[in-house]
Deep mutational scan, measured.
Amino acid sequence: KAKLLVLLYAFVATDADTICIGYHANNSTDTVDTILEKNVAVTHSVNLLEDSHNGKLCKLKGIAPLQLGKCNITGWLLGNPECDSLLPARSWSYIVETPNSENGACYPGDLIDYEELREQLSSVSSLERFEIFPKESSWPNHTFNGVTVSCSHRGKSSFYRNLLWLTKKGDSYPKLTNSYVNNKGKEVLVLWGVHHPSSSDEQQSLYSNGNAYVSVASSNYNRRFTPEIAARPKVRDQHGRMNYYWTLLEPGDTIIFEATGNLIAPWYAFALSRGFESGIITSNASMHECNTKCQTPQGAINSNLPFQNIHPVTIGECPKYVRSTKLRMVTGLRNIPSIQYRGLFGAIAGFIEGGWTGMIDGWYGYHHQNEQGSGYAADQKSTQNAINGITNKVNSVIEKMNTQFTAVGKEFNNLEKRMENLNKKVDDGFLDIWTYNAELLVLLENERTLDFHDLNVKNLYEKVKSQLKNNAKEIGNGCFEFYHKCDNECMESVRNGTYDYPKYSEESKLNR
């Protein structure tokens, strides 16, 4: 008799109507990190870190770059004969040098303040090359056809396309004075040089004057150069050297050249137009028929994500570079809930034993079982409120962090190594801060989002509990077992918050 009662009780308990509160689960393989956990499985997430590029040089917003090819900045601007293909260059979106560009200054020497000139050019998007001192009329008392084997072109001695090597005419090199007034309405880049012979005999042979000088002056520039005559090792078949100089001439300003020898005179100059998204990159990537809004030396990035880990040097509207390998923000729920887990921000989770793959029309909802059958029903209101809140948060985070910009490298010469090392340390410090901030932001927001979901499920549970009161009992896994019969209409009233407690209280009292 006792065995019969136990079996009867078990049958009745199993047959009781139930309603459970749960949440969506799926077959997603997404994982995120939080402050407290690593690799948390979630139903949905968004990636904030771009880690792919196309490996190509592309047009930037429809404008092609200027590819210097086998030449570098120095060779292009001075007019190395091997860089003749660059003479027609007028406009570009950015400038590309190759790491091993070999054609710079063909006659050995240095372009002074080269690093600063590169910085200036990094904001130039177009130029006009014009004859600042016409070759045939500007130097009537001097020979202007100086050439050298060091600047050979097609097997013949030649010289820079933008400079003139002035030497004596006959047996004399009379003092020369020439000036140019900038009437271009924009900055003009003027380049010139000073020749330093290897011996007094060479000085006399070329310029006749043993104590020659070169003077260059404008409103913002004033220097006097004296040739340094000295024996030097042979470089590119030359014992002599040429140093090259430049200045930016403001609109309306005048530049005056005065010399008694050794002047490498300007022939062509450049009127410059600035462009905020221009820059110089060093890259071996090849040019393709493609378009982008962000270019790196590795390749083009076409992404609206706020961060990238491809390269710190970028041109155009680019994500911020960070050292992170993963920045994924959760938008959905835990896919593998932890039992009795309390989140960092106070939300209680884990009283549900598992997510439901059968509930596909919402994030949170119900599963019921009664004599009429069983089924899932999503709670659309709480789901939609959660979707709206999380979507707004993700968009806000992306908008705040998605300050796209150009980031170019800084140039230092060989004598500025300590400054370069200090600059690298400062840049590394800023990069570490950006990386830390980005990672911390994602970790915190992921923790908040998961706790937010847990709290929403808990609130749904409490909503049902407050309606049923003692007409049902909690069975410990997020479910309630009714003390009365609850048909589909009754189940719907529980879900929509209109459950009639008094209607079922007498039946429940008897069954309790």
Rank of each mutant, 00 (worst) to 15 (best):
K1L: 14
A2Q: 10
K3Y: 10
K3N: 07
L4G: 01
L7M: 09
L8A: 01
L8Q: 06
Y9W: 05
A10S: 13
A10C: 12
A13F: 12
T14L: 01
D17V: 13
T18H: 10
I19H: 01
I19G: 03
I19P: 02
C20I: 00
C20L: 09
C20W: 14
I21K: 06
G22R: 06
H24W: 04
H24I: 13
H24N: 00
H24G: 04
H24S: 11
A25V: 15
A25C: 14
A25P: 02
N26R: 13
N26S: 08
S28F: 03
S28R: 03
T29A: 01
D30V: 14
D30Q: 15
D30Y: 08
T31W: 06
V32I: 15
V32P: 00
D33S: 02
D33K: 03
D33V: 12
I35K: 07
I35L: 08
L36W: 06
E37W: 12
E37A: 13
K38N: 09
K38P: 06
V40M: 11
V42A: 14
V42E: 11
V46P: 01
V46F: 14
V46H: 07
L49H: 04
E50N: 02
E50M: 01
D51H: 12
D51M: 08
S52H: 13
H53M: 13
N54C: 03
N54V: 06
N54A: 01
N54K: 11
G55A: 09
G55H: 09
G55K: 04
K56A: 14
K56H: 11
K56C: 06
K56Y: 03
L57Q: 09
C58M: 12
K59V: 00
L60G: 04
K61H: 15
K61M: 04
K61L: 03
G62R: 09
G62I: 01
I63A: 07
I63D: 09
A64W: 03
A64I: 04
A64Q: 12
L66C: 08
Q67V: 13
Q67P: 09
Q67L: 13
G69N: 11
G69Q: 14
C71P: 03
C71Y: 08
N72L: 00
I73R: 01
I73P: 14
I73V: 15
W76E: 07
W76S: 07
L77W: 04
L77D: 03
L77R: 01
L77Q: 02
G79C: 04
N80T: 11
N80L: 07
P81H: 15
P81R: 07
E82S: 11
C83A: 03
D84L: 10
S85D: 15
L86W: 04
L86V: 10
L87W: 15
P88K: 11
P88C: 00
P88L: 15
A89F: 13
A89C: 07
A89Q: 08
R90G: 07
R90Q: 12
S91Y: 13
W92D: 14
W92A: 00
W92K: 09
S93Q: 10
Y94F: 06
Y94L: 06
Y94V: 03
Y94W: 05
I95N: 02
V96P: 03
T98L: 11
T98V: 09
T98R: 12
T98D: 14
T98Y: 03
N100W: 05
S101P: 13
E102H: 12
N103I: 03
G104F: 02
G104N: 06
A105D: 01
A105G: 05
C106M: 14
C106R: 04
Y107W: 07
Y107F: 12
P108D: 01
D110G: 13
L111S: 03
L111M: 15
D113F: 10
D113K: 02
Y114L: 14
E115Q: 15
E116D: 11
E116I: 08
E116T: 13
R118L: 06
R118Q: 05
E119H: 06
Q120H: 14
L121K: 05
S122T: 14
S122I: 03
S123H: 09
S123E: 14
S123D: 12
S125Y: 13
S125P: 00
S125D: 13
L127I: 12
L127R: 00
R129D: 05
F130W: 11
F130R: 02
E131Q: 12
E131M: 08
I132F: 13
P134Q: 12
P134C: 02
K135S: 12
E136W: 00
S137V: 10
S137W: 10
S137N: 15
W139G: 06
W139I: 02
W139F: 15
W139A: 04
P140D: 06
P140E: 13
P140H: 03
P140S: 13
P140T: 09
H142N: 12
T143Y: 04
F144L: 03
F144H: 08
F144S: 11
F144V: 08
F144Q: 08
N145S: 08
G146R: 10
V147C: 00
T148I: 03
S150Y: 05
C151Q: 09
C151I: 02
C151G: 09
H153G: 03
H153E: 10
R154E: 13
R154H: 14
G155I: 02
G155Q: 13
K156D: 07
S158G: 15
S158K: 12
S158T: 11
F159A: 10
Y160E: 11
Y160C: 02
R161H: 14
N162S: 10
L163Y: 01
L163E: 03
W165G: 07
T167K: 04
T167Q: 14
T167Y: 14
K168E: 14
K168F: 06
K169S: 11
K169V: 08
K169R: 15
G170I: 04
D171W: 02
D171Y: 00
D171K: 01
D171A: 12
S172R: 06
K175S: 12
K175M: 13
L176I: 15
N183Q: 14
K184W: 00
G185L: 13
G185N: 07
K186I: 14
K186V: 12
E187K: 07
L189A: 12
L189V: 11
V190F: 04
L191Q: 01
L191E: 01
H195Q: 11
H196I: 12
P197R: 06
P197A: 09
S198F: 15
S198I: 04
S199I: 08
S199P: 07
S200E: 09
S200M: 09
D201Y: 04
Q203A: 14
S205N: 12
L206D: 03
L206H: 08
S208C: 03
S208E: 09
S208L: 11
N209V: 14
N209Y: 10
G210I: 09
G210M: 07
G210W: 03
V214Q: 09
V214E: 06
V216I: 13
V216A: 04
A217E: 00
S218K: 06
N220C: 07
N220H: 05
N220K: 12
Y221L: 10
Y221M: 14
N222R: 02
R224Q: 12
R224G: 09
T226D: 04
T226R: 09
P227M: 05
P227E: 00
I229W: 00
A231K: 10
A231D: 06
P233G: 07
P233D: 00
K234L: 15
D237R: 04
Q238A: 10
Q238M: 15
Q238V: 10
H239Y: 06
G240Q: 07
R241T: 09
M242A: 00
M242D: 05
N243A: 13
N243F: 15
N243E: 08
N243Y: 14
N243C: 04
Y245L: 14
Y245G: 10
W246F: 09
W246S: 02
T247L: 11
T247H: 15
L249C: 02
E250Q: 13
P251W: 02
P251Y: 00
D253H: 09
T254F: 06
T254I: 07
T254R: 10
T254V: 15
T254G: 11
I255D: 02
I256K: 14
F257G: 00
E258R: 12
A259M: 10
A259E: 02
A259Y: 06
A259G: 09
T260D: 00
T260M: 07
G261A: 11
G261K: 04
N262W: 07
L263D: 00
I264Q: 02
I264L: 15
A265T: 11
P266T: 02
Y268Q: 08
Y268M: 09
F270I: 02
F270R: 00
A271T: 15
A271H: 05
L272K: 00
S273C: 00
S273K: 10
S273R: 10
R274F: 11
F276R: 14
F276C: 00
E277T: 07
S278R: 08
I280G: 04
I281A: 03
I281Q: 05
I281S: 05
T282S: 14
T282H: 11
T282R: 12
